[in-house]
Design a binder for these strands. Structure first.
Length: 384
DNA sequence: GGCAGAATAT
DNA sequence: CATATTCTGC
């Protein structure tokens, strides 16, 4: 589209920082300010253009806004300098601004590098994916919790926004997360200003924050079921245009699921109850619901006899396959029996438990996907 | 309006 | 196939 005209026909500094540097080399102050004005205007135009997409490109908007703001400051600064000769270093009116300007500049300048070249962005996203790439200076904090299933009730959590890429290489064991939406889109780079690509990029992968290793069964110990959240990062409405990250039901998770289910008395338990019982951080009702649906499906398939025929493998009772359960931090009371029948429907909702800690780790009975495990016992009549 | 369950979609 | 999302009914 013609948007590309803007960027291709007109000279545009690679980055704002370059622009400023270039600006500083100009002798003529009036020229300087006109250049500045022009640039600001361009940014504003840009902003107007993406106005329509502000919901989709919130970051883009932010970046633009920020850039404009900065440049405007610069403009002011220049104007002042024009008025009064250089000496006037100290500008009373915005004295603090002055200082701020500097430090600020530093910051935003560095961030400016981000967009410096649209190519850059892709560049690293493409190959660097394998190397360690610590892209952008800006972030390196990422405190990924490592507990798998877990406790804490903090579902709120803050780290919503993880700069992309990183998570990809960081550690997925392919199994679970295979969205490779990567940065594939953006064929038409030319259309976007660097700013845009950056923002787009970011928003695209914004919410991928989970890493679980699905293959939990084995020794590794199911390291990671973290929370995955996709909350809108800040701006108003914006519904997540992106699909939820797939939740991987590791054996551990599943185990908890089954346990909870059993405690609740079988299949009739509702997703919500189950979720509450499971106390897995970040797990949503929908996820449980979905899983439950599958569970019921499977269960339905193998009739009661399963216990007999299927035998061991699936049976929750015994079978120690691996002891990965390691990390369930929460309570640990074993509460041995998972026989559904036992306390099956006695207690309904959450409350119940005689013993404090619900579930807990007990033995590592069932591992792999053991659907069949629980339900057979519970029904006391026909049901389901 | 939320939740659960079934039906679809990916 | 497994999970996510959408559609329905309660």
């Amino acid at each position: 589209m013609e948007l590309s005209l803007d960027t291709s026909l007109v000279f545009i500094p690679k980055t704002i920082s370059d622009f400023l540097v270039q600006l500083s080399t100009m002798e003529d102050s009036s020229q300087r300010s006109s250049e500045l004005d022009a640039y600001v205007k361009r940014l504003e135009d840009e902003m107007r253009k993406i106005e329509v997409f502000k919901r989709e490109l919130p970051l883009c908007m932010l970046l633009l806004k920020d850039a404009i703001e900065r440049l405007k400051d610069k403009v002011m600064q220049c104007k002042k300098m024009e008025d009064r000769p250089v000496i006037e270093e100290f500008i009373p009116l915005k004295g603090n601004l002055e200082g701020k300007e500097n430090s600020d500049k530093k910051n935003w300048m560095s961030s400016a590098q981000l967009w410096s070249t649209s190519l850059n962005v892709f560049e690293y996203s493409n190959h660097d994916s394998v190397s360690g790439l610590r892209l952008r200076n800006v972030e390196d904090d990422r405190s990924v919790p490592e507990n798998p299933i877990e406790p804490s009730n903090n579902r709120a959590v803050g780290r919503t926004f993880v700069p992309f890429k990183e998570q990809y290489e960081s550690g997925f064991t392919g199994t679970c997360l295979k969205d490779d939406k990567e940065v594939s889109q953006v064929p038409s780079l030319s259309l976007m200003t660097p700013l845009m690509s950056e923002a787009l990029d970011a928003s695209t992968n914004t919410n991928i924050k989970s890493n679980n290793n699905c293959r939990g069964g084995s020794g590794s110990g199911l390291a990671g079921q973290l929370k995955l959240q996709n909350k809108p990062q800040q701006q108003s409405q914006q519904q997540q245009p992106f699909r939820k990250q797939r939740r991987c039901w590791s054996p551990e998770l599943h185990r908890r699921f089954v346990e909870s289910l059993q405690q609740l008395g079988g299949t009739q338990a509702t997703p919500k109850q189950i979720r509450e019982l499971m106390q897995v951080d970040g797990l949503t009702n929908d996820e449980v619901k979905s899983h439950l649906q599958k569970y019921r499906l499977h269960v339905r398939k193998l009739p009661t006899s399963s216990a007999a025929k299927g035998n061991g493998i699936w049976m929750p009772l015994d079978h120690s396959a691996d002891h990965s359960k390691a990390n369930n931090s929460q309570s640990g009371s074993p509460q041995g029996p998972l026989l559904p029948g036992e306390f099956a429907k006695g207690r309904s909702t959450t409350g119940g438990e005689s013993d404090n800690s619900r579930e807990a780790e007990e033995d590592e009975k069932s591992d792999g996907q053991s659907w069949k495990g629980g339900l057979l016992h519970n029904n006391q009549g026909g049901d389901v």
